[in-house]
Design a protein around this nucleic acid. Structure first.
Length: 106
DNA sequence: AATCTGACTGTTG
DNA sequence: CCAACAGCCAGAT
């Protein structure tokens, strides 16, 4: 059984070092992993990994799209709010959108 | 090895 | 401002 690939490990490490109260976009994490264009792959890893201790709820879409959270988007929003990030409800390509603006570049 | 999928993103209409 | 389309990427089947 193959362990996590280097890319996956890098992505997890990047997400892991996102400080509380701060967030990063999938593109930012991808860039930190060395592939600024692999935002989609990052999302896939978040979806499959599900590693405890990784604040995956701090990773959001570039336009403020909250993405997913095992379908518990509400919980993800609550977690972000618990970290002092007030979010509003909007709509970005059919997904929920946060009112706050991502830092763009961790 | 080829094909499909999707927690993305930027551009167009 | 919102919806749809196209482009890109790594992992899974």
């Amino acid at each position: 059984m193959n362990g996590p690939s280097e890319f996956e490990r890098r992505v997890i490490a990047a997400v892991r070092r996102i400080p509380p109260g701060r967030v990063a976009t999938y593109g930012d994490v991808a860039a930190l992993a060395g592939k600024p264009r692999a935002a989609r792959a990052v999302g896939n890893i978040m979806r499959t990994a599900g590693v405890p201790g990784v604040p995956c709820h701090r990773v959001i879409g570039a336009g403020g799209a909250i993405g997913g959270f095992g379908g518990n988007v509400q919980m993800k929003r609550e977690l972000l709010r618990a970290e002092g990030i007030e979010v509003g409800i909007g709509r970005v390509r059919g997904f929920e959108r946060l009112r706050w603006r991502p830092t763009r570049r961790a």
